[in-house]
Nucleic acid binder design. Sequence first.
DNA 1: ACTGTATTTCCATATTTATGGAAATATAAA
DNA 2: TTTATATTTCCATAAATATGGAAATACAGT
Lengths: 105, 105
Amino acid sequence: MNTNQAVITLSCLAQEARLKIFRLLVQTSPAGLAAGEIASRLDMPHSTLSFHLKELSHAGLVKSEQSGRFVYYSTDFSTMNALMAFLTENCCGGEQSCCLPEKHS
Amino acid sequence: MNTNQAVITLSCLAQEARLKIFRLLVQTSPAGLAAGEIASRLDMPHSTLSFHLKELSHAGLVKSEQSGRFVYYSTDFSTMNALMAFLTENCCGGEQSCCLPEKHS
DNA sequence: ACTGTATTTCCATATTTATGGAAATATAAA
DNA sequence: TTTATATTTCCATAAATATGGAAATACAGT
C-alpha cells in the first residue's frame, strides 16, 4: 500500500452508498450476496448499485464471482487490512502504544 | 460512529495532501508538530495546509493546541479507532475470524 | 508602538464525481 | 426459439471540492 492506493481505497469508501454496500458485505462475509440481493436490501436502483460495485471492485475492496445468472459479491479483506496498516504505520515513532484502541472491561 | 460520520472521516482522509499530513502526525505522535513545521516537511503552501488542517480538525482526526505563536497539531486516535471498528463491525456475522489480518511469522 | 514571525481567511477557477431511467447484454428455463 | 430474470452500460445533468497568492489576523520580543 502506498499513498496513491490508499487515496483510491479511501475515496471509494468515502461515499454513503458504497460504504453501506461494503459494510453489508463485511457482515455477510465470507459468503457474500448476489447483486440483486444487495440492491433490494439497500433499496438502490440497479444501475446505481452496479456503478458502485464496479468502483469497489476496482479499488480491490470487493471481489465477484459469477454463478449462473447471478454475480456474487464479497469483501476482499486483504485490501482493507492493508489500508488499516498503512494508516497507523510507524505510529508514535514505532512505539505502538499511544495509537491502540482503549480496552473495554 | 455512524454512516454519516464515517463518510466525513473517510472523505477527509481520501485526499493526498490530508493523508500525508495525517500520516506525518501519526508518526510524530503523541507530541505533534507546529503548522509551519508540517508545511516545510511536506513542502506545502501555508494556505493550502491551513485549509486541510481545518478539514482534519473538523473531522476529529487531529487536535490542536496553541502555544505562543505556534499551533501544534497531533493525531486524535479515538476517531481513527472508531472508524476502524465501524468498518469491520459485525464482521462475518460476528464470527470475527475471516476478517483478521494474516499473521506474519 | 513597531517589527518580525506564525497562522488563517478570502476568493475565483478548474476538476472530479454521483444519479437513475432506458437500452443492451448475459444466462437460464420453457 | 421464445420468454423471463439478472446485471451492466450509456449518458446528460447536478453538485461538491482543491488550489495558492495576497491580505488579514495573532502573538512575542525590542
